[in-house]
Nucleic acid binder design. Structure first.
Length: 951
RNA sequence: GCCGCGAUGGUGGAAUCGGUAGACACGAAGGACUUAAAAUCCUUUGGCCCGAAACGGCUGUGUGGGUUCAAGUCCCACUCGCGGUACCA
């Protein structure tokens, strides 16, 4: 009987659905295992063949764990808020909800065809009010919390308020935007509004004027991880710097815990390194520099306290608070001009153009150690957001300071013996100090420590740890996102009561900013908060007494994706984000699979979010994802035709790939992308090409054998031309514009889901990037067809020792592979076993075979399992147990090497002693031949492995 | 620049603990079956050399060194490719 994959797959998918095979309970005696795929954004383009790679791997692992007796949670849902749907809405007027709904339906259809074991009853969507209720809830909790550095956890803001009324800021050790100082009396004397302003300095979710990445084209602010090389990651639009009042999350408070936590989780080193770099911890010192002739000082941060004796100038960031205090009247105009120029530069210009710029302020600072006066400059190579926004410049030992000093002709004082600073700075933290007073003769490392001590003793500064990690900007001037549960009273934000959540996203008549430049929610009519009745009312009712305006920004993409893994544990719970029972049972994600592109975004934010919830006592684990695997990208394999552009070119003649290096065509052809779907094994379907686009209708070709094919088709047929047009190829990103997108639906249609799943795994190691080449898929499809035919009539015969050996070899291999996420090597193992067993259709062999195959190819495995006479599902079976006794062989093969080269092999009884193996080899007829009369110097016998004779 | 990852036939890749490099699959070539095609099956397939033949020789895992009886695998230096990051003091 023909292997009718379509019929088999549809039938079983239907039946599994009816029987709710994949429904997962939160109550079970079995041990739990939680497998999670990264939250997909349902884009309008649908899935291409690269997307399911990770899903297939996680599906295999989930099914394997299930067969091993675990209760496996393997959910799927959608990160449904986001820019593309909204941009589409702006262009077409189609409500993003409608587009999103449609895209999700398409994704689910595509996913279900591939036969994943998701429990769809647990699906979540970030745009669902029942879901974003908990996003808003967490935000309120963050607003009402501050971070205590002593207890190293988030605390209720009330604790801080009572501390202030008793002690003011004395001995306060908490995360804060800037260091404030006031007494208990001063606190008590503050107005309500002033108190609220002060508290903003400490809240974990806070409103502040911050320098943001503003993207004019998208009309919104973007987070650092949403910007790459000065362009928005989504859409590639230019981004500029602006100061705006924004919601932020005090992620930086958790910097140290985010760093420490990395040591306790099983992620790849590269991913951990990326996060460590992003967090960017550096230990250094803050030091106060007095202003010459003024009763004023400012603070800088340095990791090279040892170099104070070499400071020849100071530099402030253009945005630094200190700038206006330092500029002298004579230099005001020049400084203003510079500041204007800097503010006009886009981020992109700043990155691409590295020339030295800056301006002198007219003021001098006093070096606290040498008492020398040194000029203060402003330059944009100093960043306002890091350290204190001010540096002491040591040109001899910092390349940026060096460039600046050379440009402005400032002195360079070398501080390390033997360092040549005539051409460039000496940045390495090594060597012996000189020109440095009491540090002279010390190693750099000791000098840094000594200077830190000195600074603290003399009260010039203090030891300090800085992090590169910034607070996350949390406002977006967009429509399609979670609304903030916030209204404004006297200019200060207040949270909507918990029991009134969710605050639903209102309807708007257009998705663009308002005429006054407010975000799209400014277009909503029903968008004001009635504090008395606790409900949303028409904004015309705003009286600022009991009815107040609501926040107009929405939350960013990472808001909804930061705690979704918790919601899957208990997605129907309307009382809490996740019940204690459910959380205690599922604990955390055991295996998380997804792309490494989330290293500095989602994977930082959700670790932060989870730690905050952990501090609140809502979750029992302080790390969300125990083990994480990055799947590699599937790249596209593009095909090209080569248009002739040399002499006499018609612009419509194409040269076959292997001819283009010939002298008559070399450098006279232009490669043009051609749709990979009209190319098979690099041979162009000429008719399909001619009808692909009107411009190719009369295309002419020079074929592989050098003959030409004109547009006169009858002529070609008459000549009986059998040569082909061969296309060139290249590995590129899979994208529409390269015409190399391959759709999983087409693959399922042509080969079936089981073949697609097997082939995606067969392509190569999960973590590595690899090109998709449909050409190879026939191989795995043939394997399934052979297997199908082999299982036509299952018998009850006793298996032979050979057959049992093949089976148990397979059990051993596949079990090891799955445990080690080496899925690509399992497929050949199945092929080899099938080949060894091709005459075997015994139930005792094929039934366990089917169970082994079930995680990889669930449909055909189910069919074979049922042919073996089973009623229940193969997916409820038990993973076959390896029995080593079947693998034991009674003989042992030894390759025999002479000077490391294998010459022949011998076969001896198993467990032949080393000495005996040696004498057998030396007595072997061929040995004399290879010794060529010489004597072996040494004979190495590695028991069970190899023999090497050294001559 | 810095950090990370990678490089093995025409192609994707295998070699899991330092022990027969190229498993498995694609492609290609040849053959069987067939009126024919498709499908299926069989043989060959890293390169070079010798030869009537081979269970024949040499060479071979990006480059150059090294350690070892033995290196794709370990060490040192380098080249190229991919990804991340970018004035973080």
């Amino acid at each position: 009987m023909e292997y009718n994959f379509k019929e088999i797959e549809q039938r079983w998918q239907q039946r599994w659905k009816e029987e709710q095979l994949y429904k997962v309970s939160n109550r079970s005696d079995k041990p739990k295992y939680y497998v999670l795929d990264m939250f997909p954004y349902p884009s309008g383009a649908g899935l291409h063949v690269g997307h399911p790679l990770g899903y297939i791997a996680s599906d295999i692992y989930s099914r394997y764990k299930r067969l091993c007796g675990y209760n496996v949670l393997h959910p799927m849902g959608f990160d449904a808020y986001g820019l593309p749907a909204e941009q589409y809405a702006i262009q077409t007027g189609q409500h993003p909800e409608v587009t999103t709904e449609k895209n999700i339906a398409r994704y689910k259809e595509q996913l279900s065809k591939i036969g994943f074991c998701y429990d769809w009853d647990r699906e979540v969507r970030t745009c669902d009010p029942d879901y974003y209720k908990w996003t808003q809830w967490a935000f309120c909790k963050m607003f009402n919390s501050y971070y205590c550095n002593n207890s190293r956890k988030a605390q209720p803001i009330e604790n801080l308020i009572s501390y202030f009324s008793e002690h003011g800021t004395q001995n306060l050790n908490v995360a804060q935007t800037e260091e404030l100082s006031f007494t208990a009396e001063e606190w008590q004397g503050m107005t309500e509004k002033r108190k609220q302003e002060v508290l903003m300095n400490y809240r974990i979710a806070y409103l502040a004027d911050t320098k943001v990445n503003w993207c004019p084209a998208l009309g919104t602010v973007l987070a650092n991880d949403e910007v790459s090389e000065g362009l928005s990651v989504r859409g590639g639009h230019p981004v500029e710097q602006r100061v705006m009042r924004q919601w932020s999350l005090r992620v930086s408070a958790y910097a140290q815990r985010l760093l420490d936590g990395l040591d306790r989780i099983d992620w790849t080193d590269s991913l951990k390194d990326t996060q460590r770099n992003w967090i960017g911890r550096s230990e250094g010192a803050e030091m106060r520099f007095r202003l010459a002739g003024k009763d004023m000082s400012f603070t800088i941060f340095t990791t090279r306290a040892d170099t104070v004796f070499g400071v020849t100038f100071m530099v402030l960031a253009p945005e630094s608070e200190y700038v206006k205090q330092v500029v002298t009247p004579e230099h005001q105009a020049e400084v203003d001009e510079y500041l204007t120029w800097v503010s006009r530069r886009t981020e992109r210009e700043r990155i691409s153009d590295r020339k030295v710029t800056g301006v002198f302020t007219g003021s001098y600072a006093v070096n606290p150690l040498t008492e020398q006066e040194i000029p203060i400059y402003i330059s944009d190579y100093v960043l306002a957001g890091y350290g204190t926004g001010a540096i002491m410049a040591v040109p001899a030992h910092d390349s940026r300071d060096y460039a600046f000093a050379r440009h402005f002709d400032l002195p360079v004082i070398p501080l390390i013996e033997g360092a040549d600073v005539s051409e460039q700075s000496f940045d390495a933290k090594e060597g012996i100090m000189m020109n440095s007073g009491f540090l002279n003769g010390m190693q750099v490392k000791d000098a840094i420590a000594a200077m830190k001590r000195y600074i603290e003793e003399k009260g010039i500064g203090r030891v300090r740890v800085n992090y590169r990690l910034r607070d996350a900007i949390f406002s977006r001037q967009r429509y399609w996102g979670e609304p903030f549960p916030v209204y404004y009273k006297d200019g200060m934000p207040y949270m909507i009561q918990e029991d009134c959540l969710p605050l639903r996203l209102p309807e708007v008549d257009k998705f663009l900013p308002t005429e006054t430049g407010e975000p799209p929610l400014g277009n909503a009519q029903l968008w004001a908060w009635d504090e008395k009745n606790n409900k949303v009312v028409d904004k015309s009712l705003v009286d600022n007494k009991s009815v107040f305006p609501l926040e107009l920004c929405t939350m960013p993409g990472f808001a909804g994706s930061s705690a979704y893994y918790l919601r899957y544990m208990d997605n129907h719970n309307s009382e809490t984000l996740v019940s204690k029972d459910a959380n205690d049972y599922w604990q955390q994600v055991d295996l998380y699979l997804g792309g490494s592109e989330h290293a500095t975004g989602h994977l930082i934010y959700s670790r932060f979010w989870n730690k905050f919830l952990f501090d609140l006592g809502v979750v029992c684990k302080d790390e969300p994802f125990l083990k994480l695997i990055n799947q590699g990208m599937i790249q596209g394999r593009s095909n090209f035709v080569y248009r002739y552009i040399g002499e006499g070119a018609t612009g419509n003649m194409y040269i076959s790939a292997n001819l283009i290096d010939k002298p008559e065509y070399k450098e006279k052809v232009q490669p043009i992308h051609v749709d990979v779907n009209i190319v098979h094994n690099d041979i162009l379907d000429i008719d399909a090409f001619r009808s692909w686009m009107p411009e190719y209708r009369d295309a002419e070709f020079v074929l592989e054998d050098g003959t030409s094919l004109t547009s006169d088709i009858s002529n070609d047929q008459a000549s009986g031309n059998t040569a082909a047009y061969i296309c060139g190829w290249a590995i590129e990103k899979m994208s529409k514009s390269m015409f190399n997108v391959v759709n999983p639906d087409d693959m399922v249609e042509r080969y079936g889901a089981d073949t697609l799943r097997l082939y995606e795994m067969f392509l190569g190691p999960l973590e590595m990037s690899k090109p998709w080449d449909t050409n190879g898929i026939d191989g795995v499809h043939r394997f399934l067809r052979r297997l199908w035919n082999q299982c036509e009539n299952i018998t009850g015969d006793e298996p032979t020792a050979e057959e049992l050996r093949s089976l148990h070899k397979l059990i051993k291999k596949v079990t090891w592979d799955i445990e080690n996420f080496s899925f690509n090597t399992s497929i050949p193992a199945f092929m080899i076993a099938q080949n060894e067993l091709q005459k075997c259709s015994k139930r005792a062999i094929m039934e366990p075979f089917a169970v082994l195959l079930a995680p990889f190819a669930p449909h055909i495995a189910e069919e074979i399992y049922h042919r073996c006479g089973n009623e229940g599902s193969v997916h409820n079976a038990q993973w076959p147990q390896l029995e080593e006794k079947y693998l034991v062989e009674d003989t042992q093969k030894y390759p025999v090497q002479f000077n490391g080269k294998v010459r022949f092999t011998i076969e001896v009884p198993k467990d032949t002693p080393r000495e005996e193996v040696e004498s057998i080899v030396l007595a072997h007829a061929d040995t004399a031949k290879y010794l060529q009369g010489g004597q072996p110097k040494k004979v190495i016998v590695v028991p069970g492995r190899i023999v090497n004779i050294v001559m």
